[in-house]
C-alpha cells in the first residue's frame, strides 16, 4: 500500500465532442514525486487533471488516485476523493465575501470538522505559506502572489497526498511566481506529490523535475 503510486492511469481513452483527446494512455506518479505536465494549448492538459479529480470520466481505462478507483467511484463519493487532493488553479477561486481565515477554514467546514480543530489547522497552514499576519484581510486586499498562497494553504488544509496545480503561476509576475514555486518545492520536500500543468518553460528549467508532455493524444516522458 505504501509503495503504490499516488496516480495510476491504465489504458485511458477519452473522446470529447467527437474529438479524440487521449488514446490508450498509461501514466503513474509515485508518492512524493514532483512532475510537470506540459503540452500545446488544447492538447488536453486540463482534461488530464479533470480525470484525476473526477470532473471527467474516461471512455476506456481506469484511473486510480491515492488508492481510490476514480473511474468506478460513485457520484456521492466524489467529494471524498476531492478532499484527499489539493487543487490549485490559475484564477485563485477564493470566496470574495470571506476573509483569508474563512477561505481556508471553508475547506475544513465542508468536511464537518469541529471549530477548534479547524482553527488550529487553518493557523498552521497559513503559517506554512507565510500569511498568518494577513488572516483577517479580504482576498481583494492581497496581491496575486499572496492570493495564490492562500489557495495553496486551502489546498493543504485537508492534508492531501497529492497537489494538483493548473498553471499556478500563470497570473503572477516573475518574482511572485518564483516564490510560489519555492512554496511548491517546500511542500514536495515534506513528501507530498505534486503534478503541475505549466507553460512556463523557464520555470521548468529553474526547478527541474520530471516532465511529461502531452502530444498526439498520448504522454511522453521527456525526463528532467
Amino acid at each position: 500500500m505504501a509503495d503504490r503510486p499516488v496516480i495510476t492511469f491504465q489504458n485511458i481513452t477519452v473522446q470529447f465532442d467527437g474529438r479524440s483527446i487521449f488514446r490508450n494512455v498509461d501514466f503513474t506518479l509515485e508518492r512524493g514525486e514532483f512532475a510537470y505536465l506540459i503540452g500545446a494549448t488544447g492538447s488536453g492538459k486540463s482534461s488530464f487533471l479533470k480525470l484525476i479529480y473526477r470532473d471527467l470520466i474516461p471512455d476506456e481505462g481506469t484511473v486510480h488516485v491515492a488508492g481510490i478507483n476514480v473511474t468506478a467511484l460513485k457520484e456521492r463519493h466524489v467529494p471524498e476523493l476531492r478532499r484527499s487532493l489539493g487543487i490549485v488553479f490559475q484564477d485563485f477561486q477564493l470566496l470574495p465575501d470571506r476573509n483569508i481565515y474563512d477561505n481556508v477554514a471553508f475547506a475544513l467546514e465542508v468536511t464537518g470538522k469541529r471549530r477548534g480543530v479547524i482553527k488550529q489547522r487553518v493557523l498552521e497552514v497559513l503559517s506554512m505559506v507565510g500569511l498568518s499576519h494577513r488572516r483577517n484581510n479580504m482576498p481583494d486586499d492581497l496581491s496575486g502572489g499572496e492570493q495564490q498562497r492562500v489557495v495553496i494553504a486551502r489546498a493543504l488544509a485537508n492534508e492531501p497526498q497529492l497537489m494538483l496545480a493548473d498553471e499556478p503561476t500563470g497570473n503572477l509576475d516573475p518574482e511572485a511566481a518564483h516564490s510560489i514555486m519555492d512554496l511548491f518545492k517546500q511542500i514536495n520536500n515534506r513528501g507530498m506529490a505534486v503534478l503541475m500543468v505549466t507553460h512556463n518553460y523557464d520555470m521548468v528549467k529553474r526547478y527541474p523535475y520530471r516532465t511529461v508532455k502531452i502530444q498526439d493524444e498520448n504522454i511522453i516522458d521527456v525526463g528532467m
Binding site: 476531492r82 487543487i87 485537508n158
Partner: peptide
C-alpha cells in the same frame, strides 16, 4: 457559480 465551483473543488457535497 464561481463559489459553487470552489465548494466542489474543496470537496463539498451537492447536499451541502
Amino acid at each position: 457559480r464561481n463559489i459553487i465551483r470552489t465548494m466542489k473543488l474543496v470537496g463539498a457535497t451537492n447536499g451541502f
